[in-house]
């Protein structure tokens, strides 16, 4: 549970309560979707990325933990700002509540906007468009140079069926701790064995190509 060895990167996930932060991490780490209790305070996961250790911090979305969440932001190298694709209020919160907290994070902290519960929205019901998401992602990252990344740090995910989840973390890790192609190959073997995303990730890779243009 504890980071005995020093982590090479700290990633924090923030967003309103109930948007599905814990579910997202659980899907990534364990490859499963299971019912989560609301997070109390914060939780912590370690993930191996090539030769590196990455600490992933899950925070609680409830207002009463706001002070603590800011504390947990300290020296984060990347932040996942999660919102529920069904709920525009959670999207607004990212800007209103959470970006100010990231003042405590590293100066060049990468900020990734992630829509959750993609499985529950349809093109007709969704209120936040892909463009909105990308615009916010661009805005959030004006302080750093993201031109070397293949596209804006904006993702849509579903922890229920696994879509997009792997991509979020791959994107972040590859940006912060770039691996050579060989290292990545063996890395994906490791994660493949734990996370059953084979088909989905392939499908999504193609979509990624489209998004980038």
């Amino acid at each position: 549970m504890s980071t005995k060895q020093k982590a090479d990167l700290k990633v924090i996930i923030m967003g309103d309560f109930n948007v599905g932060k814990t579910s997202l991490i659980c899907r990534y780490i364990e490859g499963k979707f299971k019912q989560q209790e609301p997070t109390i305070g914060a939780a912590f996961f370690l993930k191996q990325w090539g030769p590196y250790n990455v600490a992933v911090w899950d925070t609680a979305g409830d207002e009463k933990y706001a002070g603590l969440s800011q504390f947990y932001c300290r020296s984060a190298g990347a932040a996942i700002l999660a919102f529920d694709m069904n709920d525009p209020k959670t999207f607004e919160s990212l800007w209103a509540r959470f970006t100010p907290m990231l003042g405590a994070a590293n100066e060049n902290c990468l900020r990734v906007v992630v829509g959750t519960k993609m499985d529950t929205v349809t093109p007709e019901t969704r209120e936040i468009t892909v463009e909105d998401g990308k615009r916010l992602a661009r805005e959030f990252n004006e302080h750093i140079d993201i031109s070397k990344t293949p596209f804006e740090p904006y993702f849509e995910t579903s922890s229920k069926d696994g879509r997009g989840v792997q991509d979020v973390f791959d994107y972040i890790f590859q940006y912060c701790l770039p691996l050579s192609d060989d290292q990545r190959k063996s890395q994906s073997k490791v994660s493949r064995s734990t996370i059953d995303l084979m088909d989905d990730s392939c499908v999504h890779k193609n979509q990624k190509g489209k998004c980038g243009c």
Partner: peptide, 11 residues
């Protein structure tokens, strides 16, 4: 001492 946390909180 550096002002951040290395373990999740205890409830």
């Amino acid at each position: 001492s550096a002002g951040n946390s290395k373990r999740p909180p205890i409830s």
